[in-house]
Design a protein around this nucleic acid. Structure first.
Length: 859
RNA sequence: GCCCGGUUGGCGGAACUGGUAGACGCAGCGGACUCAAAAUCCGCCGGCCUCACGGCCUUGUCGGUUCGAGUCCGACACCGGGCACCA
């Protein structure tokens, strides 16, 4: 028999599956459907190991469900719009489309070599006009349904390149190309009104039982529902029109501890004040000389500028608070104005110390021992505390009670009302970039914003663009933007903003159900295939992508594009960890790739020169650190099955995995070993009438493995499934070495065991197992076989080994029947010599028997 | 700064709902086969003490709950993900 040769076997089976259209699926109401979706990649040029890991896991599930009788939809496509294509265009003087499609071709070929069970007939790319035409159609429906709005918001502005920058393009507060300090600038932009859905998006999280708890938590915190008091302070010395300012606080229970007020530099009052005060203008300008990301704003040194304006505390009319303009107050949250309570908020306390403001403790009255010095006193909302300066009452109460009481009291006095605020902001989708889906509207001087009629879709991107100059090429284009108003025919301008690429990925799951339909979705197909039963991807998408998709699923239902279901797009979600590798760096600071170094006892040297290389920690594979391993090289050397199998071994899927050459070797050795075991197998024979002890033991191992691997695949613990397969292979190896290895019962048990491994491993290593199935005389294709069933009379033990503890330390073991009575176990335990040794004749103080688990004798 | 994770032998990890810590793999060591090597097969493999039987210690750190804690609770440390224009 031939050697196991992946280079020959793998393409052979891939051709068979392709020719037989094994993985192409259609709506089939006679079978239950199962929709497995792997997050589609950005076509960066090469598949990386993270993709291999993600898509191997998806393939295990898809192939497993297929064997379980489901009609499995498993599609793949390309998240193909985005900045890298424009950057590549600038650098290499190529067109984004050309670059993108070449990358797609290369990556598709790589994915095909992996033998993933995709239905390639459904492939789509978001940069394809066929796709974004439907997206523009959705946009128009959303616009009509009131899910879209236009308003102003802040962007990062590069004053030298005169262009909007992504957060990623802002390095240490400076534009990545110009190096100029970035400014915050206000721009009118398109938004999806996701915040209108905040409440239902939050409530529905509870129903996402098959999502990781951490993702649900992150989503809930992101939406950030909080109840608080909104009220106004009367001002003194403020310009006309600012007799009152609105404030919002989530801790009205500390209202009487307020000693200052602060407004954002973008607040209307700040804008009014800076008009005729150069000092304020300079400060506000400085505040705006920072990016827009929350991380930057929150880690900024907290600074403020005191204005002449004061506000009157509504509960204490003799108290006037100074109003500061502060760089840490966000215009986007609440009302853009806060009051500062230094005693009970660390940031406010630091601010108060810096600007010498008073500190008033609401829990400890004046003269008593307030604990507040350098540390603010922040009692948890659920803890009972005595309020010395409560808003109403002065009883001991929890913060939560005090907050409600304060709101009620203020409402009764007519100085504010309880409101619910969300942290979630509307989703700004405007991008001043070329490589994205054009927003299908026209700006007419007579009619204002006019939607492009659907029969004029798609609004396609012009091909003749110049990306070598900064700024938006669509805006600069000589003719593209000029258009007649669809309503009145007057000369009008096309919208030159394109859509955020998150829009593209917020509905691709729906498009896969009918990728060629001439409407965004097809009712019958969507109704049959939706929802996605299992979604798999990186945890880095835990918030934005998933939240936007949840919004889209709802908006698409309400505009007639999706069935209602639960309102949710993804019934189950699995987030996998990253693929990491050691890093190698020479003494002169050059990063080396794994191929460029030789590892030798604990250290590493550079190939060729032999100079020592510093071995750094294992971190996420990235181009900049050069610690990547190309999947093609691994497939070429070991085959796709080895790469796939290694990806599933060792590390739990949700955690990071370290790629090691040794680990791949191990996986490869195991696959070769299975092949050899097949060659050493005795001839197939009918089942014998009875089985000896050794054969029965082997069969038990086999059926336990079938049961265990099935549980592990269902539970996404592929590393445990792999360990079980190794254990069974070890048992088969021993069975082939000792005793009557070719007796009929052993021959049968050995064949049964290896066949079980082949079938259980089919989703993991589909090519090798398909080949072995044929070689072992299996009928048809293995890919068409049903999933094996464990014989429960063999997969469950009737005698178990019970550990015995004395004072919580293990001292012996007890072999008992699985369902032995408590009293019997206790008697046996006390009679056990290992226990008697410690008892020394005295009776025990206590004996704890947990049937099926443990015995603990306490003396 | 805020939100969310993670931390178990030399390494990746296993341990079901609070019940034998270290399954399985990798590396290492010893042996078999071989002229030799590769491949393969067998054995050992957390630390300390002990001729041995066995004992003590050990799941990032400190403390707590419990007959019993890797698992639960409280503090802390370090590492990673996200923070709304990276995808």
């Amino acid at each position: 028999m031939a050697r196991y040769d992946p280079a020959a076997i793998e393409p052979k089976w891939q051709d068979v599956w392709r020719d037989r259209r094994t993985f192409e699926v259609e709506v089939d109401h006679s079978r239950p459907k199962y929709y497995v979706l792997d997050m589609f990649p950005y076509p960066s040029g090469r598949i990386h190991m993270g993709h291999v890991r993600n898509y191997t896991m998806g393939d295990v599930i898809a192939r497993y469900k297929r064997a379980r009788g489901f009609n499995v939809l498993h599609p793949m496509g390309w998240d193909a719009f985005g900045m890298p294509a424009e950057n590549a265009a600038m650098q290499n003087n190529t067109h984004p489309a050309k670059w993108t499609y070449a990358n797609i071709d290369a990556m598709r070929a790589q994915l095909m070599r992996l033998g993933i069970s995709y239905d390639w007939s459904r492939e789509l790319a978001t940069c394809d006009p066929d796709y974004y035409a439907q997206q523009q159609s959705l946009f128009l429906d959303f616009l009509e349904a009131g899910f879209v709005t236009r308003k102003s918001s802040m962007v990062n502005w590069d004053p030298v390149d005169m262009t909007v920058l992504a957060n990623e393009q802002v390095i240490d507060g400076k534009g990545w190309r110009s190096g100029a300090p970035v400014e915050r600038r206000e721009l009118t932009q398109w938004f999806f009104r996701i915040s209108d859905m905040a409440d239902e998006l939050l409530d529905a999280i509870e129903g996402l039982g098959k999502w990781p708890e951490k993702v649900r938590l992150m989503q809930a915190n992101w939406i950030g529902k909080s109840r608080g008091l909104q009220f106004s302070f009367e001002t003194r010395h403020a310009p006309a029109g600012f007799e009152k300012i609105e404030f919002f606080t989530t801790r009205p229970d500390t209202f009487k501890g307020a000693t200052f007020a602060a407004i954002s530099a973008d607040h209307p009052l700040a804008r009014a004040l800076e008009a005729d005060n150069p000092e304020i203008a300079a400060f506000c300008e400085e505040c705006r000389r920072t990016g827009t990301s929350e991380e930057v704003l929150e880690t900024l040194e907290k600074r403020g500028l005191k204005t002449d304006v004061t506000v009157v505390h509504p509960l204490m009319d003799d108290t006037e608070l100074p109003v500061f303009i502060a760089n840490f107050v966000l215009m986007d949250y609440g009302t853009g104005a806060i009051y500062g309570c230094p005693a009970h908020d660390q940031r406010d306390l630091d601010f108060a110390h810096k600007y010498e403001l008073p500190v008033v403790d609401v829990f400890f009255a004046e003269g008593s021992d307030s604990p507040v010095a350098n540390e603010a006193f922040v009692p948890p909302k659920t803890e009972k505390v005595r309020y010395a300066r409560a808003i109403a009452g002065s009883e001991v109460m929890t913060g939560a009670e005090a907050i409600e009481e304060a709101i009620g009291h203020c409402e009764a006095l007519g100085i504010g009302e309880g409101v619910t605020k969300f942290r979630l902001r509307d989703w700004g989708v405007s991008r001043q970039r070329y490589w994205g889906a054009p927003i299908p509207v026209v700006h007419c001087p007579n009619c204002g914003v006019v939607p492009v009629p659907k029969d004029q879709l798609p609004v396609t991107l012009p091909e003749d663009v110049d990306l070598s100059v900064p700024g938006n090429p669509l805006e600069r284009h000589a003719t593209w933007g000029s258009v007649a108003c669809p309503k009145c025919g007057t000369a009008a301008r096309r919208e030159t903003d394109t859509m955020d690429t998150f829009v593209d990925s917020s509905w691709y799951f729906a498009r896969f159900t009918a990728p060629k339909a001439d409407t965004p979705t097809d009712d019958e197909a969507a109704n049959y295939w939706m929802n996605v039963d299992q979604y798999i991807g990186g945890v880095e998408h835990a918030i934005l992508h998933l939240l936007y998709s949840r919004f889209f699923a709802r908006a698409m239902h309400r505009t007639g594009h999706l069935p209602e279901r639960s309102g949710e797009p993804f019934d189950a979600l699995f987030t996998q960890g990253m693929v990491c590798h050691e890093t190698y760096r020479t003494s002169d600071g050059r990063w080396l790739s794994p191929e460029e170094v030789t590892l030798q006892d604990g250290g590493a040297v550079e190939k060729g020169t032999g100079t020592a290389v510093e071995v750094g920690p294992s971190i996420k594979m990235s181009k900049s650190k050069r610690n990547t391993v190309d999947p093609d090289a691994i497939i070429g050397q070991y085959g796709a099955d080895t790469a796939r199998f290694f990806m599933l071994s060792d590390s739990p899927p949700e955690r990071d995995v370290e790629w090691t050459a040794a680990g791949v070797e191990g996986a490869s050795r195991f696959l070769n070993r299975l092949w050899r075991m097949m060659e050493e197998l005795p001839e197939a024979a009918a089942a014998p009438g009875s089985f000896g002890a050794a054969a029965t033991a082997l069969r038990r191992a086999t059926h336990k493995t079938i049961a265990g691997v099935t549980v592990d695949i269902e539970g996404f613990t592929f590393n445990k499934a792999v360990a079980r397969l190794y254990e069974l292979a070890n048992a088969l190896g021993r069975a082939a070495a000792d005793g009557e290895v070719t007796a009929p019962d052993m021959a049968f048990a050995r064949r049964e065991g290896l066949e079980a491994i082949v079938r259980l491993m089919n989703p993991m290593a589909p090519h090798l197992t398909e080949e072995m199935w044929t070689a072992m005389g299996g009928e048809g294709l293995l890919v068409d076989q049903p999933w094996p069933e464990a014989d429960s009379s063999l997969s469950v033990d009737d005698v178990i080994v019970l550990p015995i503890q004395v004072n919580g330390k293990k001292r012996g073991e007890l072999e008992v029947a699985k369902d032995a009575a408590k009293e019997d176990i206790e008697a046996l335990a006390l009679g056990n010599p290992d226990v008697a040794r410690f008892l020394e004749g005295r009776p025990p103080r206590k004996v704890i028997v947990v049937p099926g688990r443990i015995v603990n004798v306490v003396i």
